[in-house]
Each structure stands twice: as structure tokens, then as C-alpha cells.
Design a protein around this nucleic acid. Structure first.
Length: 683
DNA sequence: CAGTGAGCGAGCTTCCGCTTGACTT
């Protein structure tokens, strides 16, 4: 019996179907060992020796895997083909006390091996598509664990631990307890804070445009682009007076078509989904939050309908492309199939490409046929994934773009106006995957045609500030900077909100809180390198050098640690405790002393200046009254939050009255996409 | 199912990245 270990139980199930009874396949459920949760776990004075422990959650699993390994002739580690997967394989060797072929692999870890070593053969295999042929091929080509890649992962892990577990306690000391900082979350907060500042500082700029409605058989609109020989830029017309003068100058002009240009333009389909683009599109199509999208995708994955949902790769298996081709030919005809298979490449340098893109496992399964079997939201997501994948292999859409130049002339000057038309000639992939397109047709015209002016109007515009981030656009930004991974986008968004650095407003825009701004300013001022947007990119370069064997991991960590530790010591003295205190005109209702505003873990709040004698506190914002408390009748129901950040509703008389509920007392809560929605499956 | 601050100094918080379950309070 040969024993294969993969990371995901669904993957294990799928693979079992391809292999005979000679193989037993189990999953590790991700990482099985890690640094301890309640201590640093890194001996910085002893060459950064890490102290790994079996994850509490994984104890039972490790015992089961170990006993299965004992009964096997061979253990085959088939974790994902990326940095984390390689590390999981290596940790499994340690945790299961496997005696590897290459004994050196064990000497690398000193924390290891109390018990007896298992004398079974250990192999490492990799595959990045889950098809019978790919797995059988992988089994024919086993290799050893790549210790250089494992070291790159260790460096990543240790650096993140040092940053997180050193900066967070500094914040507890200097700002408020319970706060946190980290390589990923702190940059996410920084982006939100800086965007808000940009919006606040934004100065709108005035500009004007002049458009003409012209007639020849049909009406169409053209925009002024040139006066005499001077081409206009966006800000060429700055004031209403200037715009009005131009309109007046055009008074007795004669209008005609001076030039017509026709061009065929093609539009290519978008690539199939990866985690980030799925999260973004599910947000813009359906308003699903990142967390909700991932939960639904997980359900589809477990049902076997889609491939793995945490991926940064656009790769598609040959089988799936062939199946898509069949489906396209059958449903839409040959014309709709791309002449050559479309191959999409990853732009991102940090992509690890362990999996395929997110696609339906069986493209022949029409979403419509599954509609009854799926919950409504599952259906929506499957339908979206299916359409995006099928479209990715279809032919381009073809447009005919027409550019018309119109000349207005009088005795004094001439003016050029332009109109563009865009007409769909062949829909191609748009038949399946609709996209917002500006389609507008123009009347049939010839050069030199005289035109009748119906209307000539100046319009005033102002430049707009950039938009606040929402979950989807923040994930997009993080991905572009290479910060975070597919498995962490949604949790990171949750963390910065649980910490109350960032809140979602009623339009789901992300805005920084007082605490978020304060912590960000502190980090930017005192630890600029670490919250630098390029920090992760530089780290990745070093990790690559470790993975390529050009550097050892310890010196890389040392180069980071030494200046960081020095700065940390300096700043723990230099930074004064941040307790912003503001005066108010209010008097304390309990003792009559003055009420002041203090800064706490949850932001600003009212407190009695007589503290500690008087312990009166009150929230800064008036709490929304959501009806009377049904238990004590005197209190009001107010929205509150648990320590973990989940919303609940309690009585304002607490702690005198202990009424509390998870149910939203607001009349018609928007269905589905609340962040606290636990997504009960409606069967 | 729960809030903030000071200081006595108990006992606690915290990172990123892999994976899914337990809880229906």
C-alpha cells in the first residue's frame, strides 16, 4: 500500500477515483506545524532557530497520518507545488518522524524527532492539474523535497512573525491593547488611510466642453476638439466666459463633414478567474463580499463543480480547453470558437502557480441545468465562473468603429468637432459573457455632407476625486503590489475591520477610523521601511535568492532583524503614549465634573475627567435607537460588537439588563451579504 | 454575546499562510 498525502480533502477524494486500491490518499488540511501562538518562538540570539510545534488543531490529524504511514510501504508527499506546499511536505516529514531517503533532510531541523523514526520510503511529487494523466505522470517522476524552497518559506514565516509579534506589543504599550500590526495588514490600512487623505485634500478643477447636436437624416452629437489649428486639451477651456465666447464666435458658421474613418476593432475575452478577479467580479456583479464569495466557491469546490478557488494562476488543463471547445462548437457553432486556443499568462511576478485557474470541472454542465440543485447564490457564482471560462476560449467580438470629423467655418475661423460611433458586427464571446460597452451608432454620412446645427451647448465639468476603496478594489490594489496571497485576501480584509482600523460605510466604502489613522501615522513615521508598499516586493526578491540557493535564509533575516531591533529599542523610548485628550463643554451626569474625549481601543469616547474616582464613559456618537428592550422595557436596543468583531444587538442598560440577540432588529435587513451572515445553507 | 482611560504589575493581546469545520448561542 502506498500512501499519498495532499493538502485538501476534496483533492484527496478526487484523486482516489483515478488511482486503484494500491493507493491510500489522505489530506493534511493545510499546515500541520507552525511557530507557537503565544510566544515569539524564534531564538534571535541563536541564529534565529525557530521553535515549531504541532498545531493544536492538527494533533489528531497528525496521529492519524502517522498511523497510516506506518502501515504503508511508501509515503508520497503530494502537497502543492509552491513555497508553502514544499514547506508543508517538509513539516510532514518532521511531524510524522519519517525517515527520508536523504538523511540530510532531517539534520536541518534540530527541534525534531523524539520518538522512533519510521522506515518507509518517502517521495515528493507535484502536479498542478487534477487529471488522471497529470497524476499518473507525476507518480512516475518523484523527486526529493527542495530544501532551498523550504528555507525560503521559513524566512517568510520568521520575518512575518518578527514584524507582527514585535510591532503589535509596541502598539499595546503606546496606543491601546489588543491592536495589531503586520507586513500585510498594515499596508492595507495604509492604502485606505492615504486614499481618504487624497480625497479630503482633493481640489476639484473646473473645465468646459462644447458639444454640437447635428442633423443629417438623424441627429448625432459631436465634441469640439480643435479651434483653427490649436488642438484642445482637457483644461483648454477653463471658465464659463471662455466657453460662452467660443459659442458666440461660432454664430454664423457653416457645418459639414470633413472626414470619415472606419476601422474594425476586436475585443478579446478576459482570462478565466483567479481568486482576486473572482472576488472583484462577484462584488461588482452581485455585491458579494470577499468572504462570502470564498465561502460559496468552497461549497462549489466541495461539490466537485469547480476547480480549486485559491489560486493565482491562469493555467487551464488541456482536457478542460478541449471540453470547452466541444461545448462552444455544440452550443454556438464553429464561428464562436477561437481559431487558436487562448493561453493566458500571469503578469504578477509573485504568482506561485500551484493550481489551475478557477473553472468549472465539467464545462459541459450548463449552469441552467444545475439551477435547481444549487442555492441561489451558489448558482449565481457557478454561472459566473462557467461563463467567464467558456468565454475565455471563444472568438473575439468585432466592432466597427467610425470616426467623423466635422468642420464648422465662418469668415473669421474654423472649428473641428468629432464624433465616434461603435457598432457591434459580431458578438463572439459577448454572447456568453456580457460586458459594459459603449455602443452608439452614427447616421450614414459621406464626406462633404452639409450638416444642420440643432443645438450648440457648453457644459461645465469638475474633475472628480479618486473613489474610496471597497473590498474588491483594495484586494485588486494589494494584488498589484504583490502583497498577500489568494488565501489571505478575505481574512486580511476581515482583520483590519475587526481591529476597527477601517470601517465599511453604508455604501460599503472603506474608510479609516481615528484609531486606524493614528496607528498608521505612527507606523509610517517610526517604521517607514516596514509599512513601505514595496517592502513585500523586496522581501520576495530575497526569498527568490534563497530558493535559488544564492543565499542562506539566516543572513537574510539577520540583515532585516538587526536594524529593526535597534529601531524598536529606540522607539519604545522615543514614542510617547498616544492618548489624545480633548475638552468638551459637557458635564458628567454622575458626578458633575468635566467630560473629556479620550482615545481608546475602539476610537474616541467620552470619559469623566474625575477618573479614577468616577468611571463614567459614553460613546462619542449617539447610538442608533432600534426600539425598546423587550426584557426590561426601559432600555433601548443598540448595535454592539463582540470582542471578535461580530455584531450583535443588546440592551443599552447593560450590565443591569443582559438582553442580547444575534438577530438584526432592523426591519428589512438586506438579504445575504452582511459580513456577519453565517450563510446557513437553505436546503 | 459587552468599551475603552492611570498605575499598582495578574494575565492577556499579536503575525502570515496553508486548510476546513463547529456554533446557532
Amino acid at each position: 500500500m502506498k500512501f499519498i498525502i495532499v493538502e485538501s480533502p476534496t483533492k484527496a477524494k478526487t484523486i482516489s477515483k483515478f488511482l486503484g486500491d494500491d493507493y491510500k490518499i489522505e489530506s493534511s488540511y493545510g499546515h500541520v506545524r507552525d511557530l507557537p501562538e503565544r510566544q515569539l518562538g524564534i531564538d534571535v540570539d541563536n541564529n534565529f532557530e525557530p521553535k515549531y510545534t504541532i498545531l493544536p488543531k492538527a494533533k489528531k490529524r497528525v496521529a492519524e497520518l502517522k498511523s497510516a504511514a506506518k502501515k504503508s510501504s511508501e509515503v508520497i508527499l503530494a502537497t502543492d507545488e509552491d513555497r508553502e506546499g514544499e514547506a508543508i511536505a517538509w513539516h510532514l516529514v518532521q511531524a510524522l518522524s519519517l525517515n527520508t531517503i536523504d538523511q540530510k533532510q532531517l539534520t536541518n531541523d534540530k527541534s525534531n524527532v523524539k520518538g522512533q523514526m519510521l522506515n518507509v520510503k518517502v517521495k515528493r511529487i507535484v502536479f498542478h492539474e487534477i487529471t488522471e494523466s497529470a497524476i499518473k505522470e507525476a507518480l512516475k517522476n518523484p523527486r526529493d523535497i527542495d530544501l532551498k524552497l523550504v528555507d525560503a518559506q521559513q524566512a517568510r514565516r520568521i520575518l512575518d512573525r518578527l514584524v507582527g509579534y514585535k510591532l503589535s506589543p509596541l502598539l499595546w504599550k503606546k496606543v491601546a491593547k489588543g491592536l495589531s500590526a503586520g507586513r500585510v495588514q498594515s499596508v492595507a490600512v495604509r492604502l485606505v488611510v492615504e486614499r481618504a487623505k487624497e480625497i479630503e485634500d482633493f481640489k476639484p478643477e473646473e473645465y468646459h466642453t462644447i458639444s454640437a447636436i447635428l442633423l443629417k437624416n438623424e441627429e448625432f452629437e459631436a465634441q469640439l476638439t480643435q479651434i483653427g489649428k490649436d488642438k484642445l486639451g482637457k483644461f483648454s477651456i477653463k471658465t464659463t466666459a471662455e466657453a460662452e465666447k467660443i459659442v458666440a464666435d461660432l454664430n454664423d458658421a457653416k457645418w459639414h463633414v470633413s472626414k470619415i474613418e472606419k476601422k474594425e476593432s476586436k475585443r478579446q475575452p478576459l482570462p478565466p478567474f483567479i481568486t482576486s478577479t473572482l472576488q472583484q467580479t462577484a462584488w461588482s456583479w452581485f455585491g458579494f463580499g470577499a468572504k462570502q464569495t470564498m465561502l460559496l466557491a468552497q461549497q462549489l469546490y466541495e461539490t466537485g463543480l469547480i476547480t480549486y478557488m485559491r489560486t493565482d494562476s491562469f493555467n487551464l488543463s488541456k482536457d478542460s480547453v478541449a471540453a470547452a471547445n466541444e461545448k462552444i462548437k455544440k452550443d454556438f457553432g464553429k464561428n464562436y470558437l477561437s481559431a487558436t486556443p487562448r493561453i493566458y499568462k500571469t503578469k504578477s511576478k509573485t504568482a506561485q502557480e500551484a493550481h489551475e485557474a478557477i473553472r468549472p470541472t465539467a464545462p459541459e454542465k450548463d449552469p441552467e441545468k444545475l439551477k435547481e440543485k444549487l442555492a441561489p447564490q451558489q448558482f449565481k457564482l457557478y454561472d459566473l465562473i462557467w461563463k467567464r471560462f467558456i468565454a475565455s476560449q471563444m472568438s473575439s467580438a468585432i466592432f466597427e468603429a467610425t470616426g467623423i470629423a466635422v468642420l464648422a467655418e465662418n469668415a473669421n475661423n474654423n472649428w473641428t468637432f468629432r464624433a465616434t460611433g461603435n457598432v457591434l458586427k459580431f458578438d463572439g464571446f459577448l454572447k456568453v459573457y456580457p460586458q459594459k460597452l459603449s455602443e452608439n451608432s452614427l447616421p450614414l454620412l459621406k464626406e462633404k455632407d452639409a450638416l444642420e446645427l440643432k443645438e450648440l451647448g457648453p457644459s461645465q465639468h469638475f474633475t472628480e476625486p479618486p473613489a474610496y476603496y471597497n473590498e474588491a478594489s483594495l484586494i485588486k490594489a494589494l494584488e498589484e503590489y504583490g502583497i498577500g496571497r489568494p488565501s489571505t485576501y478575505a481574512p486580511t480584509l476581515a482583520t483590519i475591520q475587526t481591529r476597527r482600523y477601517v470601517i465599511k460605510d453604508e455604501d460599503k466604502r472603506l474608510k479609516p477610523t481615528d484609531i486606524g489613522i493614528l496607528v498608521n501615522n505612527l507606523l509610517v513615521k517610526h517604521f517607514p521601511d516596514i509599512v513601505d508598499i514595496k517592502f513585500t516586493a523586496r522581501m520576495e526578491d530575497s526569498l527568490d535568492e534563497i530558493a535559488e540557493g544564492k543565499k542562506e535564509w539566516q543572513p537574510v533575516i539577520r540583515d532585516f532583524w538587526e536594524p529593526f531591533a535597534k529601531n524598536l529599542a529606540l522607539k519604545s523610548i522615543e514614542i510617547k503614549k498616544e492618548v489624545s485628550i480633548e475638552k468638551t463643554a459637557l458635564k458628567c451626569p454622575e458626578c458633575g465634573e468635566e467630560v473629556i474625549i479620550r482615545m481608546g481601543r475602539f476610537g474616541k469616547f467620552y470619559a469623566c475627567s474625575g477618573f479614577p474616582k468616577c468611571k463614567y464613559t459614553a460613546p462619542l456618537q449617539e447610538q442608533e435607537d432600534l426600539g425598546s428592550c423587550s426584557k426590561c422595557n426601559t432600555g433601548k436596543v443598540v448595535k454592539r460588537r463582540t470582542k471578535k468583531g461580530r455584531t450583535f444587538w443588546g440592551c443599552s442598560n447593560w450590565p443591569k439588563c443582559d438582553y442580547a440577540t444575534w438577530e438584526n432588529p432592523e426591519k428589512n435587513p438586506p438579504p445575504g451579504d452582511s459580513e456577519d451572515d453565517k450563510q446557513k445553507e437553505d436546503e
